[in-house]
Amino acid sequence: MRLSFTLNGGSVETDVAPGATLMELLRGLGAVSVKDGCARGDCGSCAVLLDGRAVTACLLFAGQVEGLRITTAEGLADEVGLHPLQQALLEAGGVQCGFCTPGILMAAADLLEREPEPTEAQVRVGLAGNLCRCTGYVKIVEAVQDAAAMMASATPVAEGEEVGHG
């Protein structure tokens, strides 16, 4: 079936099998940051932003994104450079193997859009659907708060404006 949507700012029109998952669709389009860690919504490594909200791409059918806006980790950085979340994860040591990192970035981006200055507890709630086996989450949680601080000091974001782009 025919499907059209926006992926990382560019419009996509493509044919897709009616039973295809969103994860398959996106990986097939080269967005391989969408990781297949469990294929049943438990690990969060396939998380993408769907109209700004982080969802598990493995549990959605491709057809569900018709007309919607998708952002993956590939689309987080812009021409100026890495997104503050990406920078903060690197600086804080929040990346070890990096397999869960794209999903963490998506969940964190969703969180920061709703909660620009999250407490540690709010960060933990926001990332509770993302499994990381390497870090114990300490440096990831710190990084999300660091990124929030970076964003607050860098750009006076108008209320309701989207974080990053895409």
Binding site: A73, A77, Q86, G93
Partner: peptide, 21 residues
């Protein structure tokens, strides 16, 4: 010193660096 991880920049951008990618 806490240098930037040499593979970190590729990893945070989701570059195709794992076997399945």
């Amino acid at each position: 010193h806490n240098e930037r991880k040499v593979d970190g920049t590729a990893l945070v951008q989701g570059k195709p660096v794992f076997v399945a990618d």
